[in-house]
Design a protein around this nucleic acid. Structure first.
Lengths: 230, 230
DNA sequence: TTATATTTGTGTAAATTATACACATATAAG
DNA sequence: CTTATATGTGTATAATTTACACAAATATAA
């Protein structure tokens, strides 16, 4: 069977991380070709013998060395025929979250040109990557409210205030700390530990961890989790 | 730039319709090739000079003549390398809804081999189409609860009981008619007309129409609409 | 014409959930 | 020991959701 089609398939990953009270995105600086020295999303062409999932994981590994905590398909961009001026490329974008402890990039990989950017300090990006990023940001904001994915951005043990901040900052909203805590606690998804965090100022704060079983259950069932900041 | 990649891109549409108190899916019988005489989703390969959106609309037109009311990207299937045994195909699946008045297929197109099947009477399908269909059904059930897409399955004017049934049947749940009506009405999304429907038994029922402005607003904003059947 | 079957249309009380809101506590630094 | 700073907690009110039953309007059959 011969099909006369000359379109190439790529994958791209929008990798989010949360650190220093800010949302960050992982970008790479292109080394070669048309878009040399431009910043772009992590990604590349899919090989004939690998799945899409393998492709995006391979690119993440090769280009950044980052291990993601959460990965899901976001959207397939193929309605702008000239999004890559060189040839027709359809790209399947993936949405990824990284635990903030893994946010430091190892210098020893060939990831020397990978860098985290604060979401409000994104440089000019190659192709249509800025609109893909916009799409991912919306998805993040939306998912945060109805799925407990926020925990994939935090370390295993975290302060309650870190969780609060994460929601405030990503959703760009204020929060009622008491009501937020009540709600989160009602899902049984986080548990107090006996340890205390090391904050400089104020009353010492307990460390919390999240209950993976409850988390998994809530991730599967839709409409079981819902956080609405006033 | 030469990329050594030999993967083909297709689009498939899962077209839902609602009639006779049952959910239906539009399928076509393949005429040629390996899967000759097997039933399959509407779809085909993307042309080099058309967008994905154009491709899926073209296939719908060519293969079935059906005009859909609602169309959105569902998911891209490319993690089974041998989903098509002939060659590597990545398919972008689209989710479509058809107004029940358009559910009768015109015999004059080359759509002679297109047919509506009740969701619980789906024949054996080609490739992995059955799992794509499963995915679409879940999306339909999920979206029905948080977006007012049910109206895209009904005629312009409809009985309230038709809307009730649609929700009951697609979500496979019972309903409290009073509470359901109250909720729908509270969104201001449907309006009474002066006309009455033609039901054989029982008290005559008013026809309703939906308010397109409110509908469009609710479609855009997430978390503004939510129907939860007990 | 009357009784029966069938579907439509409607309200209220109770329970649950969401919201608004303020101060005592524990520490570090001065 | 005073001050600054962040943590941790409860209650009253409002809003929403749930549970629940019967009269009204028609067609059909007796």
């Amino acid at each position: 069977m011969v099909i006369n089609q000359n379109i190439k398939i790529a994958v791209d990953a929008i990798v989010f991380g949360f650190a220093n009270n800010a949302l960050h995105v992982l970008l790479i600086k292109q080394k070669y070709g048309l878009i040399k020295n431009q910043w772009a999303l992590v990604g590349g062409f899919v090989k004939d013998d690998e799945t899409l999932y393998q492709a995006v994981n391979r690119e993440l590994e090769e280009e950044t060395g980052v291990k993601v905590n959460y990965l899901e398909q976001l959207y397939t961009f193929g309605d702008d025929i000239h999004r890559d001026p060189r040839l027709r490329v359809v790209t399947i974008a993936y949405f990824a979250l990284v635990n903030s402890t893994k946010l430091v990039l190892k210098a020893d990989t060939d990831a020397e040109d990978a860098k985290w950017f604060q979401i409000d300090q994104i440089p000019k990006l190659a192709f249509d990557h800025i609109s893909i990023l916009e799409c991912a940001k919306k998805r993040l904001q939306s998912k945060l409210t109805y799925q407990p994915i926020g925990f994939d951005l935090l370390p295993k043990e975290f302060l309650f205030s870190e969780l609060e901040n994460l929601y405030c900052i990503i959703l760009e909203k204020d929060i009622d700390r008491r009501n937020f805590r009540k709600k989160i606690m009602s899902y049984g998804i986080v548990e107090e530990t006996e340890k205390y965090g090391s904050n400089k100022n104020g009353r010492p704060a307990k460390l919390f961890k999240f209950n993976k079983m409850k988390y998994n259950k809530l991730l599967k069932d839709d409409f079981q989790f819902y956080i609405n900041l006033a």
